[in-house]
Every structure is written in structure tokens, then in C-alpha cells.
Amino acid sequence: MFVTPAYGQEAAPEAEGAGSDVHAGTEVPHDAAHEGGFPPFDPATFPSQLLWLAITFGLFYLFMKRVIVPRMQGILETRSGRIAADLDQAAKLKEEADAAIAAYEQALAEARANANAIGQKARDEAKAEAEAARKEVEAGLEKKLAEAEERIAAIKASAMQDVGAIAETTAQAILERLVGKADKTAVAHAVKAAR
């Protein structure tokens, strides 16, 4: 840093920068070894360099400002815009897909509920039918049972009636054998009493 101020004074450093010990060396060689000293510090070339720097740099700056920078800005903006649009579209498509999935799932759930309901109904109907059939069968069976019981009772009654007559005849026959004679009415009374 200490050397910079000495060099900054663009025109002067030819003498200054080289130091006092080469002072003579810088001044003298104008005619000797190097024609015109150290070229970067030769003030004679400054106007031309400055002018051409101004021309070239100025034109370059204008060209950049007018043409290149807007154009590149345009390119980059188009690209970022395009990318953003693509991302938007992708997001939209994803949303659509999500909606489709949701709708599908809802339909699926509905169908499942329907199927359940139908199954339940079928089950209930079958149950009711079976119940009715069972009741019918039971009723039939009971009726048959009652009939059978009635018949048994009737048979039993008739059998009971027959028992008296058989007993009288039997008793009369036994008496006739034993006694030789039998009073029909007395036998009947005796049988009745025994019964």
C-alpha cells in the first residue's frame, strides 16, 4: 500500500517511482537502450490512449446497455416465466389428479356402502323367509300333534267303553262255568262297581 500513492500520480512516477538511484537511468535512456523510457509512463501516448479508451469503452457500454443487457434480461425472464408456468401447470395437473383420486375413492366408498346395504337387506329377507317357513312348519306340526292326541283320546275312550262289555261277557262266562248260571244284570252291576 505504501507504494501506491507514488504510482497513482499517473504522469509523474516515471521519475519518482523508479527511485532516486535510477533517476539518471530513467532520464538518460531516451536516446540509449530503450527508445523513450518506460512506455506505460510515457505521457506522449496518454491522449491517444484516453481517446481510444473513451471511444471503445463508450461504444461498448452503449452496446451493452441498449442491446445485450435487455436481451439477456429478456431471455432470463422468459426462461423463469416459462419455468414458473410449467410449475403452475404441473401443480394444476396434480390438483386435477388429486381430485380424480378423491372422486374415485368417494365412488368406491359409496359402492361399498351400497353393497353392504344390499347384502344386509338380502340377509334380512332370507332370515324373515326362513322364520316364516319355520313358523308354518311348526304350526303344521302342532296341528298334527293335536289331531293325533284327539285320535288317541277317542281310541282310548272307545277302548274304555269296550273294556266294560268285555269284562261283563268274560265275567258272565266265568260265572257260567263256575256256577252254571249267571244273572246278566247282577254281573253288569258288579263289573260296574269293580270298575
Binding site: M1, V3, T4, Y7, E14, G17, A18, G19, D21, V22, G25, T26, H34, G37, F38, F41
Partner: peptide, 16 residues
């Protein structure tokens, strides 16, 4: 750059 400055001085002493 600081080192280059001193190298520059050396070169100037030699050639300028």
C-alpha cells in the same frame, strides 16, 4: 497485488 507492487518496483528499477 501487494507482492506484485514490489515486484513492479524491482522491474521498474531494472528496466525503466
Amino acid at each position: 497485488a501487494m507482492g506484485i507492487f514490489s515486484l513492479l518496483i524491482a522491474l521498474l528499477a531494472l528496466f525503466a
